[in-house]
Amino acid sequence: MVTEDSGNEVVVRLDGVRKEYGETTALAGVSLEVRAGEAVAVMGPSGCGKSTLLNMIAGLDRPTGGSVVVHGENVGECDEKRLALYRRHRIGMIFQFFNLIDDLSALDNVALAAQLTGTPARQARRRALELLDELGVAGRRNAHPAVLSGGERQRVAVARALMNRPALLLADEPTGALDSRAGEQVMDLLLDLNQIGQTLILVTHDARLARRCAGRLIQLADGRVTGEQTLEVTA
């Protein structure tokens, strides 16, 4: 577990980030840093701006004020194409509802991420199979998402997020749609990933997940950082 004082380089730096949707303020000047290898959990009540914060870092949305710098790149100033390349090469996303493509098999869902970078199909499938194998769902590689269990779907989604060896793994309520057993498995998976050096930012309601996987907890309320604490790893 890498923590803030570990001296690693800063991977993510948010400085006074604001996001407004019309009259509604989702983020009201958030500043924070995440260092390489850290596992950071962002918690807070519904509507506090957790997912919006994650979207800013992932380049899925643009701030209306402040700056989001990831690996030295000011995400808010990138054009659409540059943002796409940024997401493709730097970011791995895990969603609450998995967001797998229904018409593709598990294997092709995972391989797709590499194929978008121009990796030949055969090579992409080989790497995808390795990942599915590592995550324990290789046996379900030819199944389509509709017939997979929630845990299996999320593991396929994690494999897809890791496909391009992203510098930063972002997870938005990764256990939110899973039963407790599947949730446990996904928690273990995230912990394992972080322990081998994967930088992780986790948005969750689940304090148990945060305590288990993250080394640092950021509390958000009304679009502001209201607290921050270093956590003991419980695993």
Binding site: D102, D103, L116
Partner: peptide, 28 residues
């Protein structure tokens, strides 16, 4: 989630040498 359709075709397209956006589009 919808039950995937024409999976065999999708698999074949995914394995083709076509750029992925093109092969994805062909399967839609």
């Amino acid at each position: 989630p919808r039950a995937g359709r024409a999976l065999r075709l999708q698999r074949r397209l995914a394995g083709s040498a076509l750029p992925r956006p093109v092969s994805l589009g062909m399967g839609l």
